[in-house]
Design a protein around this nucleic acid. Structure first.
Lengths: 157, 157
DNA sequence: ATTGAAACTTCGCAGTT
DNA sequence: AACTGCGAAGTTTCAAT
């Protein structure tokens, strides 16, 4: 599926604010309202837009803290790796999980309301996944920026 | 502002899917459609829901890669720190930035379409911020999970 | 791209706790 | 007093021309 200039513009906009109406978007996108609606619908249906999510303020819901976790696993057993992946995916406190190069195998972004909850969670992770060798935790003292937008180049053409 | 049982339920739901209509939400939340609307509106206005964003598939927009960057800065100059914070916030390729404990001072999640773009970006970061001491990069070979939801405990009663 | 129909949201009012 | 639920009015979206 090809994305043209307009699609790219729309993607950049809705990544910042998905609640913009087609009418509002038409202020920035030189396209009729219905054309915008059709494109958005297509982008959603085709999976370019995977989903739309609300971002809540962690301070307002009982002060959730973020933890950056670097995880090392035993590489020898691929079937355990698949299991770990599923565990990470299924665990709501794991917000993001990247499989990375370098010393660590995975980097996780974890949220928990307090250190104790975090501790219990990590203990459970280790006990439920036999292939975890070690992990190191960095507590986020501050959130400088939080987003999920990927800049989409808008061709100059 | 106090969040009751219903608010918490709503928050968990819209963090997964912000496009759910009040009508659809009323299937899970034992509240009338208008009551749900009112609460969502209030949650947005009061800043508990900070914003709603579309998440796009990186593979579909020219294969964006994720990079996990651990950043060390000179701690001696607070005014440069403020500047760095702003730089990170303003740079679209920086998706997330955490100020953390541990060896690194910041952990960044960066996206770029290719290594070269990433390289140029990091070079620019260093040249435009005098207090960067060093940084290490972990390339994300795989995205196991990607989300921004924070689990909101729903009181038992 | 325009139009009309359907769906969703907003707002006012009355009734409850 | 604050919040629910209902219904009418106003927007937004959808589909067909």
């Amino acid at each position: 599926m090809e994305l043209d200039h307009f699609d790219r513009q729309l993607l950049n906009l809705v990544q910042e604010d998905a609640s913009l109406t087609a009418d509002q978007l038409s202020d920035s996108v030189a396209l009729s309202v219905s054309a915008i609606q059709r494109r958005l619908k297509r982008l959603r249906a085709s999976g370019v837009i995977m989903r739309e999510t609300a971002m809540v303020d962690p301070k307002r819901i009982g002060g959730s803290t973020f933890y950056v976790v670097a995880l090392q696993v035993e590489r020898e057993r691929p079937e355990l790796l698949t299991q770990l992946r599923r565990w990470l995916t299924d665990e709501p406190h794991v917000q993001q999980a990247f499989y990375v190069t370098g010393e660590a195998d995975f980097v996780l972004i974890v949220t928990a309301p307090d250190t104790e909850t975090y501790d219990v969670l990590m203990t459970r992770m280790v006990s439920e996944n036999a292939n975890i060798r070690r992990f190191t935790t960095n507590v986020a003292l501050g959130l400088v920026k939080r987003g999920s937008a990927i800049p989409v180049p808008v061709e100059v053409s």
